[in-house]
Amino acid sequence: MPTSLRYVFRRLVQALPMAFAIVLLNFLLLKLTPGDLADVIAGESGSATPEFMENLRRLYGLDIPVHLQFLNYIQGILHFDLGYSFRQGMPVGELILERLPATILLSLTAILFALLIGVLLGVVAARSRGSLLDEAISVVSTMGFATPLFWVGLMLIVLFSIELRWLPSAGMVTVGADYRGRWDEWLDIGRHLVLPAVTLSLFFLSIYVRITRSAMLEVYGLDFVRTARAKGLTEARVVIRHVLRNALLPIVTVTGLQLGAIFGGTVVVETVFGWPGLGRLAQEAVFSRDVNLLLGIFLCSSFIVIVVNLAVDLLYAALDPRVEVRQ
C-alpha cells in the first residue's frame, strides 16, 4: 500500500534529527571529558614525551579544528568505527557486536515474558475490578515496580540457585560444558536465562499490568463494546476481539516508551547475574573509566532504541487503521 509506505518513509525522516542529536551529544561528551585520547594512551603507557603526545594527536586527528573532527567522527560512525578500547585491547565496535546478542536475547525474553504475564494479569484485574483478586494483583504489581532489580535478582539467586538448586545463578553457559549437540547448548542457555529474564521482566510486568487494566476498563465503557454485546457474542469474544484488541494500542505505545528503560535495567541485571551482555560491558567500562567504550555503548543503544521505536510506531500504525488519517 502506497499510503503505508509513505508513512514508513515519513517516520524514517522524522527519526533522522534525533539520530543526529545523539551523535552530536556523544561527540560533545567525548570532547568534554577531561583529557583526550592522547592523554589516555599516555596514561596507559605510563610515560610519554610531549613529542610523542603531539604525534599521537596528529595520528588520531585531534590537531584539526573541532568541526572537522566532528565530520571525521560521523564518517567513522558510518563505517561502524567507534574507536578503540585501550582497556580491553579491542575496537569498541567489535566489543559491542560480541556482547549485543546476549543482551538482545535477555531483553526480548524479558519483554515477551512481561507482556504475556502482564497483559494476562491486567485483563484478569480489569475483569474482576474492585474484587480481592484485583487488589492483590495491584499490590503485587506495585511491589514489582518499587523493588530494586538487584535486590530481586539476589533473592531469586538465593532461592532458586542456592536453596533449591534448580537453576544456575551466573553466566550464560555452563563453564566447560560438553554439549551433545545444538539442543543441549540451547537448553543450557535457556536455563541460565530464566532468572535474569524474570528479574528484568518484573519491572515491566507491573507497568503492563497497570496499563492493560486501565486501558481495558476504558475500552469497556465505549459504545462499540455495547454494540458487540448486542450482537449476542460470547463474553470471551467481546473481551478478546473488541476490548483487548483496542486496549493493545496503549500497551504498544508504552512498550515503545519503556525500551529505553530496559537498557538501564540490563546494566543492573547483567551485573548481578554475570550475563555477558552490553549492560555488563557498560558497567565494566564505567569502573575502568573506559570513556571510548562507554560512549560507544551509549551511541549503539541509543540507535537501537530509535530503530525499535520506529518499529513500534509502524506496529502501532498497523494495529490502528486511523493513524494514516490522523497524521
Binding site: 465505549l222 459504545d223 462499540f224 455495547r226 454494540t227 458487540a228 448486542a230 476481539r241 473488541h242 484488541r245 483496542n246 494500542l249 494495529l319 490502528d320 487503521p321 486511523r322
Partner: peptide
Amino acid sequence: FQDPMSALNPVL
C-alpha cells in the same frame, strides 16, 4: 444505538 461515530469498533 444513538451515536454512530462510537458504535463501531475502530480497529476492525
